[in-house]
Write a protein that binds this DNA or RNA. Structure first.
Lengths: 160, 160
DNA sequence: GTATGTGCAAACGGTTTGCAGAAAT
DNA sequence: ATTTCTGCAAACCGTTTGCACATAC
């Protein structure tokens, strides 16, 4: 659990749920609160489930799945697929217009992010050259994060 | 089944299997042949299984899984994860140095490819800025392919 | 009051695995 | 002869679904 919980965000999300004709149940509230209060964490559904249960022990896993799918359809969260078999979800922050990407450490599987509209020029080339209308993109870099690189260096030094 | 079957490729692959200490069974042969003869097709394991069974009806699905995992470890095939729950595999062609990406049509789920080392400059920026050592990357564009766009246009015209 | 949402447990679908027999080296 | 591989069926694991009850509106 990290990141600053923003009452503004919670309002925005619950409002949109309402407007779209969905009921604002305590379960959904709890899930929204939890997922917002852990920005930057890329939670699996199980992880989210565990966190939500701290506040709402009666909640069922299926409800978490259903809510997260719903929120994804509404564009409130975005799904992230690493290569490890379970989907991850994170809040979509309003400020950014779909231009954030992921750095995935293959040692510790930590996920960090980087910003930038670096792809825009590439997209234009593609659209013209291949007559392909781009709606969305996914850019991921796999490699070794700073912490793991440091650790490795330390080990090497000890061996010398 | 499409693409030109290259005897050279088959040799290269079977050779590498041997050298790495793996036995060259008829099952593996059949799988290698099939996957090579369908370059550009991004097969799911089930699809590959169905194709291989045309030549080797006794083969088991588990063998196909095991072979494809093995070949992936050896770098002979690459795994492609779309958002549809099943992994796809394609031959890794020697000519290209990991610089090919995917265009995925969200209408017909056809997958096409595009080449280009467009990411290299971006990678350097990232490596410096975030102290992240990049080993691999994945770039995918989701959208509407040329054929589907045409189809849509046709429908619109009929409605007018 | 009614439509929608929930919890539970069972089903699902892609993938992996344990095992006994088969085959490559 | 020995190690590796195969086919089968069962297990696995993340996810989805059917259902009877509960609840937000």
């Amino acid at each position: 659990m990290q990141g600053k919980l923003s009452g503004e965000d919670i309002k925005r999300v619950t409002e949109l749920l309402r407007k779209s004709g969905y009921k604002l149940t305590p379960q959904r509230q709890a899930i929204v609160d939890t997922i917002i209060s852990s920005v930057g964490n890329h939670l699996t559904v199980e992880e989210l489930y565990a966190l939500v249960r701290l506040k709402k022990p009666e909640i069922g896993l299926a409800t978490v799945y259903r809510t997260v799918i719903l929120m994804n359809e509404l564009g409130l969260v975005s799904r992230l697929d690493l290569k490890d078999g379970s989907a991850r979800y994170e809040m979509t922050r309003i400020e950014e217009n779909h231009t954030h990407h992921h750095l995935i450490c293959t040692r510790c599987s930590r996920v960090s992010e980087f910003m930038g509209d670096l792809l825009e020029p590439i997209e234009h080339v593609i659209e013209e050259k291949y007559n392909f209308i781009i709606k969305d993109h996914s850019l991921k870099f796999y490699g070794i994060c700073e912490e793991c690189a440091k650790e490795e260096k330390l080990k090497e030094e000890k061996l010398v």
